[in-house]
Design a binder for these strands. Structure first.
Lengths: 233, 233
DNA sequence: GTCTATATAATGATAGAC
DNA sequence: GTCTATCATTATATAGAC
């Protein structure tokens, strides 16, 4: 079987770190977790007071621990996004797991909590944090694609770098837009979000990835000809 | 030639209303246009004061005309999004124009100003305004697809409704994510945004729409089998 | 470490003169 | 219609007691 959504799988793998730090329940960590939940629910405009209330501490204590709201935000970003490097790498070397990408990726997402919702908030907001996350994902995806092309499961592209950027933008963009169209009841419930998303999009996305949309190559021919012409000029 | 990005073309067509209301330059309209520019540049968190400064009026006058910041926002939304119904319909009836979709859509986008940036802000924010816009686009896309399938330029789908939703989410999602990865110098310059986006994504997107990604149908077979099985249960 | 109380700044919105 | 001046609210962040 092929690799339906390589970049999505990688994005998700980055979120699978279900850090078993239940001992990490210092007040500081509690505040951070509460902040993630509140940011997912209400967006990054949420107030320090709302975070404090959710963590059952005083607003002053939040600032005491993180210096400022920006400091709190930075720590949340780091906790959610600054992971997965090794994960993505090991995935690349493990063709067996790439094989059943759909089921595996979805299954491993079964309980990552609010991380997915946080990621989509970051992507919607844009900015440097989102950009660096996507850039890393593009690099990983390009390497994944080369492996898959060599293995014969994925077609070669006329521009592998451009395809990697496109696949990342498309994968996470489709997810983000689907969530706008179908807002989850509980945005912090990653498992429910993934299940609903798969239910809506797995068939059309796989169909598109298998056959494309067009019946002929006229559009592609035109685009490639146009590009060749302007490159000559 | 085919119809590379039907939903994108329709989304764009909605923005092509270059309202020749140059006589519409009442202070009220000036404030509204300034608000659109500021919202595109700084997001919807931008202050009434910033809008007033850009429009060269007092903050009080902004409230005087629109009642509240929410009122101003609503008027901006209406001005940008509450159009295009007829446009999209006429497009459906005009197969000649659907034919050269790529060039036509991009060319007609040559100068729609800050509208595109405003649309991406609305989509990133989510909420009811974005949802109703996307819903309308999905309905239009499904009708477009049926026409194109009947004409033989687009492959039929096992689930036309799901495909329409997927194409809309994918088209606008890809655009949004590409803009996160490559922030435009001037987010209010729609022409430059479209040109840069096409330069980066037209080749890989058309390639994907023509051939898909996979070399075989194993993934699709698995997904369809799984769906059939769970429908039986 | 944690709280209460408060300083400071910014924002949306109002009032009234012109 | 437009402005200036101001109010009321809300936010982040600080200070100091416990």
């Amino acid at each position: 079987m092929g690799v339906p959504f390589p970049s999505v799988e990688q994005a998700f793998s980055i979120l699978i770190m279900r850090s078993a730090d239940d001992a990490d329940l210092t007040a500081r960590a509690r505040i951070r977790d509460a902040a993630i939940t509140v940011f997912v629910r209400d967006g990054f405009g949420a107030t320090v007071r709302a975070v404090a209330a959710t963590a059952d501490v005083s607003p002053g204590l939040v600032i005491h621990h993180f210096g400022s709201k920006a400091g709190l935000r930075a720590e949340c970003d780091a906790h959610v996004l600054a992971h997965g490097r090794e994960r993505a790498d090991s995935l690349l070397g493990d063709r067996a797991r790439m094989g059943d990408a759909i089921g595996a990726a979805l299954a491993r997402l079964a309980d990552e909590g609010p991380m997915l919702g946080y990621l989509t908030r970051v992507l919607a907001e844009g900015g440097e944090v989102a950009r660096s996350f996507l850039d890393r994902l593009v690099a990983d995806t390009e390497r994944s694609m080369r492996v898959a092309v060599a293995a014969g499961t994925v077609r070669p592209s006329v521009d592998e770098a451009a395809r990697a950027r496109h696949i990342v933008a498309m994968s996470l963009g489709t997810l983000s837009m689907d969530l706008v169209m179908n807002p989850p009841d509980d945005p912090t419930d990653g498992a429910a979000i993934v299940a609903a998303y798969a239910d809506r999009m797995l068939v059309p996305a796989t169909e598109y990835a298998t056959h494309g949309l067009f019946t002929d190559t006229a559009a592609l021919d035109a685009v490639l000809t146009a590009r060749a012409t302007e490159e000559q000029a």
